[in-house]
Structures are given as C-alpha cells and as structure tokens.
C-alpha cells in the first residue's frame, strides 16, 4: 500500500500525523515530508485514517478514491 501526497498543497494542519504518526512523517516545520511513501506493514488502517483526517484533501491511498 502506498500513500500519495500533493506535498505542495500541504497547509501544515498535521492532522494526518496526529492520527498516524508512524505513517505521516512531518518535516522540521510541521508539513508533510514526502510525495509518496510505502505504508509499513500492519499500519494500513492507520494510514487510511490519516488520509481521511486531512482537511485539505491532499492525501490518498494509491488506487483508492477518497470518501
């Protein structure tokens, strides 16, 4: 499973990190640090929660649509 981030549109709410800190690494000033990332095994549910938490809707799981 892969998370895709439209990094340039990140506004730094850090809600993804609040619900799934092991998936959503932030940079030093609190914005998402990657464009895409392989989700570590076992963290799939957390990753989905993190994607859903983004008020800007800039996150998605590869191959899945946002609800």
């Amino acid at each position: 499973m892969k998370v895709i981030a439209r990094k340039d549109a990140c506004a730094g709410h850090a809600r993804c990190h609040a619900v799934a800190p092991e998936v959503f690494d932030l940079d030093d000033v609190g914005y998402i640090s990657f464009y895409e990332k392989e989700v570590p095994a076992g963290l799939e549910a957390q990753a989905r929660r993190g994607v859903r938490a983004c008020p800007e809707r800039i996150l998605r799981i590869e191959g899945e649509t946002l609800d």
Binding site: A11, H13, R15, R49
Partner: peptide, 15 residues
C-alpha cells in the same frame, strides 16, 4: 467522528 476536518483554524495557505 471518523474525521473531524473542521475549519475553525482555517485552511489553505493561511491555516
């Protein structure tokens, strides 16, 4: 709540 994406702290660049 499954997701609580409120805008009390605004959104976009001026978050």
């Amino acid at each position: 709540r499954q997701a609580n994406r409120h805008f009390t702290l605004a959104g976009g660049p001026h978050r």
